[in-house]
Computed example of a mutant assay.
Amino acid sequence: MWSGDELDLDAYLARIGYQGERGPGGELRPDLSTLKAVQRAHTAAIPFESLDVLLGRPVALDLKSIEDKLVHGRRGGYCYEQNSLLAAALERIGFEVSGRGARNRTRGDAVLAVTHAVLVVTVEGEPWLCDTGFGFQGPREPVPLGRPGAEVRQGEWSYRVREDEDGVLTLCMLRGDDWRDLYAFSPQPYLPVDYVVLNHYSSTHPASSFAGRLIVHLPGDGVRRALVGRELTRLHPDGRAEPEIVGPDGLLGVLDREFGLRLPDRDAAELVRIHRAED
């Protein structure tokens, strides 16, 4: 389903710096410990970014293209790329992986289209929400789906899943003293081809939240970072948000220092030109 047999698993594990447990022969076991370690390593190593959309380039979702970009090219990507890569790796390890389509709920009462890709991974009969593609607010580890309302703490950050009357599940994040909705999704499975359709909208439609905007995120253990346009925000577990303006001359340094992201010279020059044109 997710082309896991085509993935260079060793290269992927090296890219994310995987340090989790292995079996006697060095193999990864499809258990909860491995699932947590893979997702945590992935979110620490591969930043969320949609720079190709800003640069006017197509976003390909075939596994080879994603692997070339995120693994060998050491770039980041947005949800369709991130979670397609994670799904391939988990499938290759031996996990049962299914896709879902989610509706962003971080913008108050605004009703947004289903444009976010997430995964449901079943381990020993229990479903877990796995997501490496929701940027700086996303979970670093799997969140249980079989225990709605149960709070899970991941370092200094807490999450829970709420089940609504219509069966829709909503992932919530604790910000200070308040639980805030991140996104909601139904039980309907999504296939890789469904993400191709959603990706086309997200990468080309003028109303897409990624169109014409520089977006780079990284969910850290403590401080989480988001660069949107010229504003770099550092989000703290207690709910504090520290904004900072990033000008064209400091852009490449911020991408490297804050997100571990280095672009080829041509892409870097074009990105700085676009950033400067916002003046």
Rank of each mutant, 00 (worst) to 15 (best):
Val228Thr: 14
Met173Thr: 03
Arg213Glu: 12
Ser208Arg: 09
Phe210Trp: 08
Val223Ser: 11
Asp166Glu: 00
Asp177Phe: 04
Pro192Trp: 00
Pro206Thr: 11
Phe210Ile: 10
Arg180Trp: 03
Leu171Cys: 01
Leu198Ser: 14
Asp221Trp: 05
Leu198Ile: 12
Val168Gly: 02
Arg175Trp: 07
Tyr183Val: 08
Ile215Ser: 01
Asn199Tyr: 07
Leu171Gln: 02
Asp177Gly: 05
Leu169Gly: 02
Pro189Arg: 04
Tyr190Ser: 06
Thr204Glu: 14
Arg224Leu: 10
Tyr195Ala: 11
His205Val: 13
Gly220Pro: 04
Arg230Met: 09
Ser208Leu: 11
Ser202Met: 15
Asp166Val: 00
Leu182Met: 12
Ala226Val: 10
Asp221Ile: 10
Pro192Phe: 04
Gly212Tyr: 04
Val196Gln: 05
Gln188Arg: 13
His200Cys: 14
Ala207Met: 13
Asp181Tyr: 03
Pro219Lys: 05
Val196Asp: 08
Asp221Asn: 06
Val223Leu: 14
Pro206Ile: 10
Cys172Thr: 02
Asn199Leu: 11
Asp178Tyr: 06
His200Ala: 12
Phe185Arg: 06
Arg180Gln: 14
Val197Thr: 11
Leu169Ala: 04
Val168Gln: 01
Leu198Met: 15
Pro206Ser: 09
Ser186Gly: 12
His205Leu: 13
Arg230Phe: 07
Asp194Glu: 06
Leu169Pro: 02
Met173Ala: 06
Asp194Gln: 03
Leu218Gly: 04
Ile215Leu: 10
Arg225Val: 14
Val193Asp: 06
Val228Leu: 09
Cys172Leu: 07
His217Cys: 13
Pro219Ser: 10
His205Ser: 13
Phe210Ser: 07
Phe210Arg: 05
Pro219Met: 07
Leu191Lys: 00
Ser202Cys: 15
Leu174Trp: 00
Leu174Pro: 01
Thr204Arg: 13
Trp179Glu: 07
Arg213Tyr: 07
Leu169Asp: 01
Ile215Glu: 01
Tyr201Glu: 15
Ile215Asp: 03
Tyr201Leu: 15
Arg213Pro: 07
Thr170Asn: 00
Val168Asp: 03
Ser208Ile: 09
Tyr195His: 10
Arg175Tyr: 09
Leu218Phe: 00
Thr170Tyr: 02
Gly229Thr: 06
Val223Arg: 09
Val216Cys: 08
Leu198Thr: 14
Arg213Lys: 12
His205Trp: 12
Gly220Glu: 08
Leu198Gln: 14
Gly212Gln: 05
Asp178His: 09
Arg175Gln: 13
Val193His: 00
Leu218Tyr: 00
Ala207Thr: 15
